[in-house]
Amino acid sequence: MSGFSADWLRLREPLDAAARDPGLAHRFAAALPERPRLLDIGAGTGSALRWLAPRLGRPAQRWTLADGDDALLAAAPRAVAGWAARQSWLHLEAETLRTDLAAGFEALDLPGRDGVVASAVLDLVSEAWAGRFAAALAAAGRPPVLAMLSVDGRVAFDPPDADDAFVLERVAVHTGRDKGFGPALGARAPHVVAAALERAGYAVTLAASDWRLDPAADGDDGTAAALRALVAGYAAAATETDPGAADRIAAWAAWRGSTPAVLQVGHRDLLAVADRTPVMPSPARTC
């Protein structure tokens, strides 16, 4: 269900690693048992595992990497095993699960999970799906949830260009199109999903997890390649939304692709833990 190519996932992994909020990860870890059983939905090749597992402080971890993309799931075991072999302190069990999240949650075995992880997933789903997912989590006993890197609609180039807004407005429309779950939440995801989880009995915290791409400062060919890929992706999405503006969008992409720039893309991480706040009885009424 990730909907991303392996090449793009490779480019974005260092951006994700730099952006994710370590404080929420620490609080997620505190809510887990000693030998946690973790579910990663939309797992791709295991990027979230590679970032989060060392931060959990648990030498024994069992992960299920769930995705609907056969190619990514086929690549995940080797990618995870190669990484895990360098973590001498970690006893890691990892399995893959091919599943269509749009079809329901039964295959995920939510009652058998001590924690649920997602990364760059919740902006793809619909509001109705988010409500059903929150209800399924509640029925499973409210395991803690760490959902990272949901876009929040903030995109800014420096230096700016007069056509940035023109293109990005069309990208925003494309972001809200159906990705297999109904109309996608896009930039609404952090707050819509937070509200759904709160209604399901969770206490929710949001934190910024913005990408900042500055090839000149990073001195990294990977950052420059990621920036070019993002510009190309924005142009493709904008053109699909507004084919009549294809020439204008192509001119913007050509200028952006040849002009040094810094790009900031807004994201939010979300932590949800069972709300243990006691319900206070109503004060007695007297007549």
Rank of each mutant, 00 (worst) to 15 (best):
R199V: 13
A235G: 08
W211F: 15
G219E: 04
A216R: 00
H191L: 09
G219T: 01
D242I: 13
G222W: 00
A208L: 07
R199L: 13
A196W: 13
V192R: 14
G233K: 08
P215Q: 01
A194E: 10
A184F: 08
A200L: 12
V193K: 05
S209Y: 00
T241Q: 15
A235S: 11
G186Q: 07
V231W: 12
Y234T: 03
G219Q: 04
F181S: 02
S209F: 04
P190D: 05
A189V: 07
R199K: 14
V204T: 08
A235I: 13
Y234G: 01
P215V: 00
A196D: 14
A236G: 13
G182W: 10
A196T: 12
P183T: 01
A238R: 00
D210A: 11
A237V: 11
A238H: 03
A189R: 00
L206T: 05
D221P: 11
A194S: 14
K179D: 04
A217Y: 01
D210N: 15
A216D: 01
S209G: 10
D242H: 14
A229K: 05
T205D: 15
G201D: 04
G201I: 04
T223D: 02
G186S: 08
G180Q: 02
K179M: 03
L227W: 09
W211N: 11
L185M: 09
G186M: 08
L213Q: 02
A217G: 00
L213K: 02
T223G: 02
P183W: 05
G201T: 03
A200P: 12
G186H: 09
V193L: 13
V192G: 04
A217P: 00
A236K: 12
Y202M: 09
A232C: 10
V192S: 09
K179V: 02
A216I: 01
T239Q: 13
F181Y: 12
D214K: 03
G222M: 06
D218K: 01
A187M: 08
G219S: 06
A189G: 05
